[in-house]
């Protein structure tokens, strides 16, 4: 059970398609998520879950926790209410979630299924909340399943599920450490360790 590897794309063609799709996050991380309407099918569904625990509800997960659709804890009518259905409802709901900054370098992608009519994949990684344009602690981790249908040379989302939890110490250590662009103005010679 120890043989863990990174992303599992299936083929280069699918990889290119998904990497292009992941520009989704540049809109998701912007101040307005409304343009995501273009990414969803009219009959799209969305729901989210957070881990069930007795932890302090005032933690950052609280914003997600109140909408967590955990069938093990919820009965009707909440089960139905927390499943967002139709494109307008999904994007309106996403627009209300806390603003975010995702660490694209942390992403792992697993392709679950690929047919002529559907591409399902799971994206995992870490993100931070953004308040007044500044990212803030703590770091959170997510696992998100997209079910998409082909739309021209891109993908249209029909089902979307988001799982959010607090990041582990190890994930926090590795998060947001991708090298920043080298400042070109610096005349100081760099030393390599």
């Amino acid at each position: 059970i120890g043989f863990d590897v990174g992303s599992c794309f299936g083929s280069d063609e699918i990889k290119a398609l998904i990497l292009r799709f992941l520009q989704y996050y540049s809109i998701y991380d912007s101040s307005d998520r409304q343009p995501l309407l273009d990414a969803y099918h009219d009959g799209a569904s969305f729901s989210l879950t957070t881990p069930f625990s007795s932890q302090n509800p005032s933690s950052s997960l609280g914003e997600y926790h109140k909408d967590s659709r955990n069938l093990k804890r919820l009965k009707d009518p909440m089960r139905f209410r927390l499943l967002k259905h139709t494109r307008l409802n999904v994007v309106a709901f996403l627009n209300e979630l806390p603003k975010t900054q995702h660490d694209i370098a942390s992403f792992t992608v697993d392709v679950n299924t690929y047919t002529n009519t559907l591409l399902t994949f799971t994206v995992s990684g870490v993100f931070k909340e953004v308040v007044d344009g500044k990212s803030r602690e703590p770091t959170m981790a997510f696992s998100r399943v997209f079910i998409t249908v082909p739309a021209g040379n891109s993908l249209c989302i029909v089902n979307d599920h988001l799982f959010v939890r607090m990041a582990t110490t190890e994930e926090i250590r590795k998060a947001f450490v991708a090298p920043a662009p080298t400042p070109s103005s610096s005349p100081v010679p760099t030393l390599t360790a």
Binding site: G43, S45, T49, L71, T117, T148, V158
Partner: peptide, 20 residues
Amino acid sequence: LTSDCQPVHEQATQGQTTLL
């Protein structure tokens, strides 16, 4: 600890009833 479920849109499955 948690479970969730969505009916998959039929356009993705050619009408075959599918659950996520």
